[in-house]
Simulated assay, not measured.
Amino acid sequence: MARLYAIIRVRGQADVPPDVEHVLKLLRLHKKYHLTLYPADLPGLEGMLEKAKDWVTWGEIDKATLVKLLKTRGRVPGGKALTNEYVAEKLAEYGVKDIEGLAEALLEGKLLLHKLENIVKPVFRMHPPRGGFDGSVKKPFKVKGELGYRGEKINELIEKML
């Protein structure tokens, strides 16, 4: 099973160096609290995350959180909510029948969200976390901060932001 990274921008646009701004643009993280999904084995992704580590946090998303994310924050072009009927209609050629099937296909690496851009929007606009962040938004996750790689704990943050 391929690992799927959920990448969230947790810092705003002020004082971002041009090279980091370019990386954030490539990752489609234009604004604070935007979330994108990419397979962990995507070529060049590790270098991009390393470059943007002071503006984003990321980790492996699990199936339950991914299904919940797609149901609550998933959008289709035009801004309408993602529904089971829409997924069944538009993704039938890939053998996907509902949102849970889409989540499985994404986790297994059969579908790439950024390649389905004209069917499902690849960026999820999240709320700020309920109850606030647990640490500083200027320190790495390892030293009681919020930035950088956080592994499975990304799911807890996503739950607070839904």
Rank of each mutant, 00 (worst) to 15 (best):
I7V: 15
P39N: 10
K31H: 14
L91C: 09
A81I: 05
E60I: 15
H30D: 13
A40L: 13
T57H: 08
K110R: 15
L4Y: 00
E156P: 01
R130Y: 05
G135S: 09
L107M: 14
G101A: 12
W58V: 03
A103C: 10
P128T: 12
K142S: 12
R150E: 02
M126N: 03
K144N: 13
D19T: 12
A88Y: 01
A52G: 04
I119R: 08
P77F: 10
K142F: 05
H34Q: 15
S136T: 12
K80M: 13
K63W: 06
A88K: 15
P17W: 06
L49S: 09
T65A: 09
E159N: 14
H34F: 12
M1T: 08
K71D: 03
E104C: 02
N84G: 00
K144R: 13
E89A: 14
L29I: 11
L113Q: 05
D98L: 06
G131W: 11
G78L: 04
P122S: 06
V20Y: 05
A14H: 09
H127N: 15
L45C: 10
R11A: 04
K31Q: 14
I154W: 02
P129L: 14
G131C: 02
V56L: 08
P18K: 12
T65G: 07
P18C: 01
H22P: 00
D98W: 06
D15N: 15
V23G: 01
A2V: 05
H127Q: 14
I61V: 15
E93I: 10
K25S: 14
K51E: 08
G135K: 08
Y94L: 05
D19R: 13
G44C: 11
P39Y: 03
L113I: 08
K110F: 02
L70H: 02
L112H: 10
V137C: 13
E156V: 15
V123R: 11
A103Q: 09
I158R: 10
E89D: 13
E117N: 02
K53V: 12
V87E: 05
V87D: 07
V20A: 06
L45H: 04
M126K: 07
G109V: 06
G131H: 12
Y86G: 06
V16Q: 07
G12M: 02
V76N: 07
G131L: 08
L116I: 05
T57V: 15
E152K: 11
R28Y: 11
K139I: 02
T72I: 12
M48G: 04
R150G: 01
G145T: 08
W55C: 00
D41E: 14
